[in-house]
Design a protein around this nucleic acid. Structure first.
Lengths: 113, 113
DNA sequence: CAGATACTTAACCAATCGGTAAGGTAATGC
DNA sequence: GCATTACCTTACCGATTGGTTAAGTATCTG
């Protein structure tokens, strides 16, 4: 099982072809051959991308006969969005301090809300 | 400079050491040496990470004398969060279709709520 | 000026990535 | 049975990563 890491999830979407795969799958599941045609690359290339996407917990592959159906995993971006949002909010909370820092040297005491 | 790509931004945070740098900087700017001490790696390693972070538009480096102050760029995660949120919402719109698809295949795990 | 400090650059290394082509396996169809 | 289809695997390639050490440059500091 997974123990999907933020590293793997972020790396999975750090590639335009892979984001195209995700966007394509957002409209519904697709076969490997479909994805290859959609991306205009070879099938083995798609397979490598799928490996990375599966590794990042974004998609699943279900084999039915000789056709593999690739589907998105809903909620798999939550961790990433949560991290980004949390970090961003943290900045917002410290923006005053930041502004002060940019103009003069401040002594950051540990008065965390 | 710009034309910060989603690729670069996502790749920038697809690394635990780099996320540690970002989280560290969220509490205020820091020097390169500070970051190296914080990460327990060599200074050149930090510089390479900073290159990637700058490339992803997440941080800036300002040299003052012989000290480089590294700061976060507020809002630099917006694009990424927006993409993730948009894609995720798109899924939600199609969740009925997805649910139907998943229901047509029994889940073999016994932990059914 | 001499030396320490802060950063940069260069060279090197093992590992991974993204793509290819070629060959292998299993299911489907005539 | 035989050919086709769909996917997987392997092997190879150039490029990039992430880390190191070592040497170089610029700025304080005593």
């Amino acid at each position: 099982m997974p123990a999907i890491s933020l590293d793997a999830t972020a790396a999975a979407i750090a590639s335009e072809p892979r984001r195209r795969i995700v966007e394509r799958l957002a409209t519904g599941p697709a076969s490997v051959t479909d994805l290859a045609a959609h991306l205009s690359v070879s099938v083995p290339a798609v397979l490598k991308h799928l490996d990375r996407l599966v590794d990042g917990g974004l998609v699943t592959r279900v084999k039915d006969g000789r056709v593999v159906t690739v589907s998105l995993v809903p909620g798999s971006l939550e961790m990433l969005v949560e991290w980004a949002t949390r970090t961003r909010l943290f900045w917002a909370n410290h923006l005053d301090r930041y502004a002060a820092h940019l103009h003069s040297q401040a002594s950051p005491d540990g008065s965390t809300p």
